[in-house]
C-alpha cells in the first residue's frame, strides 16, 4: 500500500520512525501550506533534504554555514554557476578553500535543519516515493535518524507549550512603557532584532513572521522570550474594527441608545436579585 496521508493524522516523528524501522530507501515528499520538502533516505538513514523555496546548492549551504564568505559566495555564483555540487565541492577542496569535513558537516547541518523545521508543520500532505533517490549531481550524507527523532520530539513539546502560551498570531506587539530600560543595552540575537525592528501596532505577529521568513515555532519562541522579559506586550492590531462587532451581533438592529437602555435594564435586574 502506498505510504501517503495527512500530517494531521500522521506526524513527522511517526513518519521518520517508520522510515528508520523499515530501513526504507526513497524520498518522503511533504507538501506544506507554502512550501514542499523532499527528504531522501538510503536504507533508513538520512541522505539528502531539499525545500523547494530555498537555494539548496552547495555554495549557498557553505555560505549559510559561514564556511565561505559573502564575497567568495558571490564569486562562486558568478564563475561556477554551471558546476554541479560534486564538481564544485572537488574544486573547493583542491583549491584549499574548504576541507571534505567542512562540506559534509555543512550539508548535515543544513539537512537536519530542514527536518527540524518540518516538526512544526501541522498542516500538509505527504507521500513516500521509492523511486526518487538522491540526484546524481548532489552530495549525499549518511545520518542516523534516532537523534533527529529525539530532538524533533523535544521541539514538538516546546512547540505545543509555545502554542498554549501564545495561541493567537493575529495580535500585534507594542513596547512596554518601562522607563530606564534601553533596548540598546539588552543583548538580543540577530533573529530577535529582526522581530523587534518590525514591532508596530499595525503589524500582527503573523505578518512579522512572514516578513522575516520565520516559521511559527521561531516567531513564537522569540515573541515569548520578549514577553517574558517584559519588553513587549500583546495588543489588538491597529486598523482592526475598534467598535465591538460582537455587541452589535448580540443586539441586532438596535442603535447605540437602545443598546445602552437594554444593558441598563440588565443591570437593574441583576442588582435586584
Amino acid at each position: 500500500m502506498a505510504l501517503k496521508g495527512n500530517l494531521r493524522d500522521f506526524t513527522i516523528t511517526q513518519l521518520l520512525n517508520l522510515v528508520n524501522l523499515a530501513q526504507k530507501t526513497g524520498s518522503l515528499i511533504i507538501e506544506g501550506p507554502s512550501e514542499t520538502a523532499t527528504i531522501t533516505f538510503r536504507e533508513g538513514k538520512l541522505a539528502y533534504a531539499q525545500v523547494n523555496t530555498e537555494d539548496g546548492g552547495l555554495g549557498a549551504i557553505l555560505h549559510k554555514s559561514n564556511v565561505i564568505s559573502t564575497a567568495q559566495y558571490g564569486t562562486l555564483k558568478a564563475r561556477a554557476a554551471s558546476m554541479n555540487d560534486k564538481e564544485l565541492g572537488l574544486l573547493l577542496i583542491n583549491s584549499g578553500y574548504v576541507s571534505q569535513e567542512d562540506i559534509l558537516a555543512s550539508l548535515q547541518t543544513h539537512f537536519v535543519d530542514i527536518i527540524q523545521r518540518l516538526f512544526s508543520w501541522v498542516e500538509g500532505i505527504f507521500h513516500f516515493d521509492n523511486d526518487i533517490l538522491v540526484p546524481g549531481d548532489k552530495i549525499p550524507v549518511k545520518l542516523d535518524l534516532e537523534n533527529i527523532i529525539i530532538e524533533g520530539s523535544r521541539r514538538l513539546r516546546e512547540w505545543e507549550q509555545l502554542k498554549d502560551e501564545l495561541p493567537n498570531l493575529e495580535l500585534a506587539l507594542k513596547f512596554t512603557d518601562r522607563p530606564g530600560v534601553n533596548l540598546k543595552n539588552i543583548n538580543l540575537s540577530v533573529e530577535e532584532w529582526k522581530v523587534v525592528s518590525f514591532i508596530n501596532p499595525k503589524n500582527t505577529i503573523g505578518a512579522i513572521a512572514k516578513a522575516n521568513k520565520m516559521s511559527e515555532l521561531d516567531i513564537r519562541r522569540i515573541v515569548y522570550g520578549l514577553l517574558q522579559a517584559g519588553l513587549v506586550e500583546l495588543i489588538r492590531p491597529e486598523g482592526v474594527e475598534q467598535t465591538l462587532p460582537g455587541i452589535d451581533k448580540a443586539m441586532p438592529g438596535k442603535n447605540k441608545e437602545e443598546q445602552k437602555n437594554l444593558v441598563n435594564r440588565l443591570i437593574g435586574r441583576i442588582r435586584s436579585l
Binding site: N168, K249, A250
Partner: peptide, 18 residues
C-alpha cells in the same frame, strides 16, 4: 492559570466582546 490565559485569548479571537 496558563490554560485560563489560553482560553481567554481564544475567546477574544472568536468575538472581541467585553
Amino acid at each position: 492559570f496558563k490554560e485560563a490565559r489560553a482560553i481567554l485569548e481564544t475567546f477574544r479571537a472568536y468575538a472581541p466582546t467585553p
